[in-house]
Amino acid sequence: MSEHGTDRVKRGMAEMQKGGVIMDVVNAEQARIAEAAGATAVMALERVPSDIRRDGGVARMADPRITEEVMKAVSIPVMAKARIGHIVEARVLEAMGVDYIDESEVLTPADEEFHLLKNTYTVPFVCGCRNLGEAARRIGEGASMLRTKGEPGTGNIVEAVRHLRQVNAEVRKVVTMSEDELMTEARNLGASYEFLKEVKRLGRLPVVNFAAGGVATPADAALMMELGADGVFVGSGIFKSENPERFARAIVEATTHYQDYKLIAELSKDLGIAMKGIEISTIAAGERMQERGW
């Protein structure tokens, strides 16, 4: 007897990605570059976040042709993005056999009230979060992996740092609370009581939590690992840099050896120009992707 799509199988897949770098790619050629550089998975999408931000309009699931070509091009896992609450985009990606779905605020939400009920799918999901309450709600719906939201497509790490510190501080607080304080904390966070009991028992989140949304350099990736991320997503940071192959390799190595500062210095030499960043305060409130979803 074999059981498919269990929590253990779906969360376990994310455990295998730990210490790794998942790279956004928009075609088979980029996917091959990412795999050769040592990416643990690729995220197939139509446009990287910085292009979505620049072009405006509605951002949707990628053309299945692109995703299919990426799946054929590499042997590492392939992830793909569906719009928040878009049941059919998610089911289509599942039917295509993608290995992980990102219910992502980088795309224009299809539903401003309800996220997907992810525990009804065989394919696992990763979702963004800014705090422990958001993490709890996504896990409650069935997310098997989390990532910080950060502010995608900016090349600015400040929001990812804020979100990871926030989640980790709230985890530490829950762990040190007494049992009789947890219900009030659950109400305050918008998390379930059972979830907080589990966090307290484990001393950590019950699923893997990666950094995402603003990683542009090897030092950024190492910073997120230092702050306790289990791994790193890089969106625009690689293929919007001057030398994607070298950036990709350097970010992979900096993630593995995140506390080896001499090595990170070496890795960071002569990489060429990183993606051009955006200062967060120059982005109008309505254009911040992290505000999408709840």
Binding site: S2, E3, H4, G5, T6, V9, M13, V98
Partner: peptide, 27 residues
């Protein structure tokens, strides 16, 4: 065994172990 949607867990009978082992297979 296929892609992630084909990943599974199963009870295995392992030589040298008395009782079955619940094993997780991922890609």
């Amino acid at each position: 065994f296929g892609r992630q949607v084909d990943s599974f867990e199963a009870e295995l009978s392992v030589k040298g172990l008395e009782k079955p082992f619940n094993a997780v297979f991922i890609r």
